[in-house]
Amino acid sequence: MRRNLMEILCCPVCKGELSLTVTEESGEEVLEGTLRCAACSVDYPISEGIPNLLPQTACED
C-alpha cells in the first residue's frame, strides 16, 4: 500500500483513526508493517503490501 492510503483507512470495528508502523518499505510503498487502532487496542497487519483490515476474530485462511 502507498503511504497516502492512510487518509482513507479506518478501524473496521470502531471507524477510528489508525496509526502506521512500517517495518519494510520501498519508496512510497509500505510492504510490511502494522496499523494500530489505539481505541480498540488492536494491531492490523500489513503483509506483502496489503493491509488486512478484517476484525481479528474473523476466521483465517
Binding site: 500500500m1 492510503l5 482513507i8 479506518c10 473496521p12 496489503i50 493491509p51 483490515l53 476484525p55 474473523a58
Partner: peptide, 14 residues
C-alpha cells in the same frame, strides 16, 4: 491495483 483486505468497505472511511 491498490488493494485492501476487508469486509465490503469496513476498514475504509472514504
Amino acid at each position: 491495483v491498490e488493494a485492501v483486505r476487508t469486509d465490503l468497505f469496513a476498514g475504509l472511511c472514504g
